[in-house]
Structures are given as C-alpha cells and as structure tokens.
Simulated assay, not measured.
Amino acid sequence: MTDQMVLEFDKVLRTLFAPARTTREVPGSRHADAEMSDDERSHAGALMRINHVGEVCAQALYQGQALTCRNKELRDALQQAAHEETEHLAWTERRLLELRERKSLLNPLWYLGALAIGIGAGKLGDAWSLGFLAETERQVEAHLNDHLGELPPQDVKSRAIVEQMRTDEIAHAATAVRLGARELPAAARLTMRMASRTMTRTAYYV
C-alpha cells in the first residue's frame, strides 16, 4: 500500500512539475512557425494553455478512475489512454513554450479537483465510470472543434496538435463505449459542461 501511494504521488509530481515526454512525433513539428501578430500569438497561446489544462485534468481523471477500477481490462484501457494523454500534455507544453506563453497558475488546483472527480466516478462502478469518461471525451472533442475555428488560420503547428488530439479523444470515447459505458443523465452532462466552461474561461487568462 505504501509503495502504491508513493507511485501515485510520483504521478502527481511528474504531471505538475516535470517536463512531459512523448514517444510520437509532435504534430506540426516539421512546419515552420507562421508570422502572427502579437494579438494572434497571445490568443493562440491562451487556447493552448486551455488545452494543456485539459491534459493535466485528464491525467488526474484517469488516475482517479484507475485507482477505483474493479476490472483489469478496463484498468489497462485507462492506463493506455492516460499514456496518450501524457503525449498530449507534452505537445501542448512544447507549443506553449514556442508561443512564449506560460502554463496555468492554477494547475495544482485543476489536478486535485479532477482527481477527486475521477475517484468519485470510479466509486460509482465501472459502467458509470466509463460513461463519465465517454462524455468527458465528447465534450473535449467539442471544445477542440471550437479551438480549430478560433486559432489563427496560419498557425498550422497549433492546428496540427489540436487535430491529432481530437482524433485521439474520439478513439478514447469509442473505447469507453465498447467496454460498456452507460449514458449519463442529462443533468450530469449539463453540470459537466458548465464546469468545463468555468475552467476554460479561467484558464484562458490565469
């Protein structure tokens, strides 16, 4: 139990304070940086900060759900999805540096909140936990679609990252459904959208 606690705490520290790593090539890395005005660069950076926060939260959600998971196949699927989300974390972190923007100052708060939600979802049972996962990924897909419409058209590097992230999130939602996700009640889906809206609006600036 002590060893497991140390490992889980190590995940928290790595997500919040260590540079994330990727085994895949960063999407768009072969493109040169496009010319952007200061306002365009700042806006692109703020959108990528939101995406980075989303990946911080994803790490916490998957960690919390895996901790309370009862099924080995599901636990393995969660760990695989978390690995892909770590790559997203690395991509958005790198793009923030390129855009000369910082990470959210509230990342520890976002992480702890998402970890608590993940543990809570997991305690409801695997089917409901998968339903929460599937709905989360659908809502992430929707906001990534919005970002593709908001990013400066010439910012092909950021757009490539967001497009690949969207592809991966769609696959994660499909995996959750395949493993037996239950459809969440409308009230739960609405609450999740409202919480997500609060997070994205805050992370744009802070």
Rank of each mutant, 00 (worst) to 15 (best):
L7S: 12
F9M: 13
D10G: 06
D10A: 15
K11V: 04
V12A: 05
T15K: 05
P19V: 03
T23P: 01
T23E: 14
R24A: 15
S29H: 11
R30E: 10
E35R: 14
S37V: 10
R41P: 01
S42Q: 11
A46D: 07
M48T: 05
R49D: 07
N51G: 06
V53Y: 04
C57G: 15
A58N: 04
Q59C: 12
Q59D: 12
A60N: 04
L61T: 03
Q63K: 11
Q65E: 06
A66S: 15
C69T: 09
R70H: 11
N71S: 15
R75S: 13
D76P: 02
A77C: 07
Q80G: 04
H83P: 01
W91P: 01
E93R: 11
R95M: 11
R95Y: 04
L96H: 01
R100P: 00
E101W: 10
E101S: 15
R102K: 14
S104R: 00
S104I: 01
N107A: 10
N107D: 14
Y111K: 04
G113K: 03
G113R: 03
I117M: 09
I119G: 02
G122H: 03
K123D: 01
L124Q: 15
L124C: 12
S129I: 02
L133N: 12
A142Y: 03
N145T: 12
N145P: 02
L148C: 09
G149E: 06
E150G: 04
P153M: 13
K157C: 07
K157F: 00
K157E: 04
S158A: 15
R159E: 03
M165I: 06
T167S: 12
I170F: 07
A173N: 05
A173Q: 11
T175A: 14
V177D: 13
R178M: 11
L179W: 02
R182K: 14
A186M: 10
A186R: 13
A186H: 10
A187T: 10
A188V: 14
L190F: 09
M194A: 12
M194C: 08
S196H: 09
M199N: 02
